[in-house]
Amino acid sequence: MEFFELAIGSIFINNIILAQFLGICPFIGTSKKMETAVGMSMAVVFVMVMAGMITWSVDTFLLKALNVEYLRTLSFILVIASLVQFVEMFLKKSIPGLYAGLGIFLPLITTNCAVMGTCLLNIGNEYDFTKALVSAFSYALGFGLALILFAGVRERVNLGRVPKPLQDTSIGLVTAGIIALTFTSFRGMV
């Protein structure tokens, strides 16, 4: 029950993009086409779950044990950067099919603050390992949900005649605002 609440809360109520404002850059950048949105979402789910597990272990067994928590920002970003690099190399060699789909999105994930943000939130919340895993997975699902929904709406919006100054990012942000508004109605759920 606790896990269920955590998952629902992380996917809908505290949606990482629409309520916590993390990962906006890829949200705007990769949502012009449905195809790229799906690719990015899958890459994020993949990296976020792995990053969540590794940073949790680094924090618990290394930083807390040695009492150097002030190095958290530094070590987390290094973990995420090398993880992304590693995943990229691994996919390229072993699963070329998946690499063709996700490849171009992987480098972008290093500077996706949703990943770093989730890792920091997990530590801030003092989650145990399972909870950190559930939260990373649900935040990633929330990211994918918001991104794919947004891409769908945006594709249609761009078919219409948008006034010149509002074109592209501008109308995109307003659209995102309306989607965020619909997400606020999930608040009463938990």
């Binding site: 801030g124 919340n125 003092e126």
Partner: peptide
């Protein structure tokens, strides 16, 4: 108190 959304 542990287990808030945004940490302790």
């Amino acid at each position: 108190g542990k287990g808030g959304y945004g940490g302790d």
